[in-house]
Design a protein around this nucleic acid. Structure first.
Lengths: 214, 214
DNA sequence: GGCGTTGTTGTGCAAGTGTATAAATAGCCT
DNA sequence: AGGCTATTTATACACTTGCACAACAACGCC
């Protein structure tokens, strides 16, 4: 009687990923305080003790989960930049559009972002991880902005470029937050349209002419 | 022996405020998970049992603490708008400047904001509280923008006004976050200057002429 | 001053926490 | 098929958590 639970042995990488995913799910749903080893294990379909077999402690699991989250976010964000045969301005517009629509506009991701960042003030590790991600993102923005202005025959100095990047980054971040927190207040594509307009104004570009037909 | 601890009876309102402040301090420093009744009580200079005398439960204390935080934030933010004998444009600039400098740019406040907002996805009460604060803020922005444009003899329709308010709100929010998380990366006043420029571009205003002398 | 009210303390408790560790078994190698 | 080994389960433990409750003492009132 009292049969022991059946189980399967998964590959190490698979198990670690499952545990990390389960951790992110738990944090997104119930916050850091709700992410207990038992909750996480239950979600991952294993028992609590197994966590200690793959991670030195719960804290390490949380750290790795945050790193994984950041990695996915920046990866998705930057993916919109790799477009061939497109003008710099089109690439910038596509970048903004991608960042202000699903799946990057997502309440769950926002919850995770906010929850972890709330501890950045106290946890230097988290703070540094965020800073690196932020600077990487801003540098991408700055590079595209430089291309856009170059295509317009304009030659901004480094300080001006930096200011543009900071402002544009703020516009995207701010609209991203609004979309995540109150997405249903905006019609589809509205945030992206607002963002593109604001960014074009910031860069002093003439409103884009619509050339839908080939 | 084992003398019982001396204590003083404080007024009810005072004690409640102290407990709320201690709660916010605890959350800012160690996150929601670090805000235990014992930690909070220790910080407030009382023993844990007293919390239950003023609040039905820990959850209620957290709710009231969040409400208090939001109240202080929006109050401070709006305070910069009450300027007499100032042009709409000056008031807008003062508003932006106030929101992008201390004490509104503050890592502790950001930690609290992020920590609580991380649970907004799961807790409808928090979500609604945030939404109200956000809409209130945006309406203030929209009102000032309307004044600024009116002073320029421009008559935008409601939709255009809404878009401007959304974009400007995003700019302020985005720069606020950057300042809170990495304040030392910016020189004093730099964020405000960037914000004002971006907002003027968004509104299509000619760069402001400096008229320092009376 | 004595006395009652009630703000405040201290203690206790059941549930839940992360971690340690022994027992079991799934899957591979021969 | 049989044994080895490392993955996985299960149990135990010390500690923390929110909450309940009884004892106590500070303060107002007469």
């Amino acid at each position: 009687m009292n049969a022991r639970r059946k189980f399967r042995r998964e590959g190490e990488e698979r198990r670690r990923q499952d545990l990390i995913d389960a951790t992110l799910d738990s944090v997104a749903e119930h916050g850091l305080q709700g992410a207990t080893v038992r909750t996480i294990a239950l979600r991952a379909g294993v028992t609590a003790g197994l966590i200690r077999h793959y991670f030195p402690g719960k804290e390490d699991l949380l750290q790795e989960a945050y790193a994984a989250l950041m990695g996915r976010m920046t990866e998705q964000a930057k993916a919109a930049l790799v477009m061939e045969d497109a003008s710099p301005r089109q690439r910038l517009a596509a970048f903004v559009t991608a960042n202000l629509n699903a799946p990057i506009i997502d309440q769950r991701v926002f919850s995770l972002w906010a929850t972890f960042l709330g501890r950045a003030g106290a946890d230097p590790t988290l703070a540094r991880a965020h800073r690196e991600g932020y600077l990487g993102f801003r540098n991408e923005v700055e590079a595209v902005v430089a291309e856009v202005l170059a295509a317009e025959r304009r030659k901004p100095d480094a300080a001006e470029l930096r200011r543009h990047a900071i402002a544009i980054n703020a516009i995207i971040d701010g609209l991203w937050i609004e979309g995540c927190l109150a997405g249903e207040m905006f019609s589809p594509g509205e945030l992206a349209a607002i963002g593109i307009k604001a960014i074009e104004a910031e860069l002093g570009l003439a409103p884009e002419k619509q050339f839908q037909e080939k």
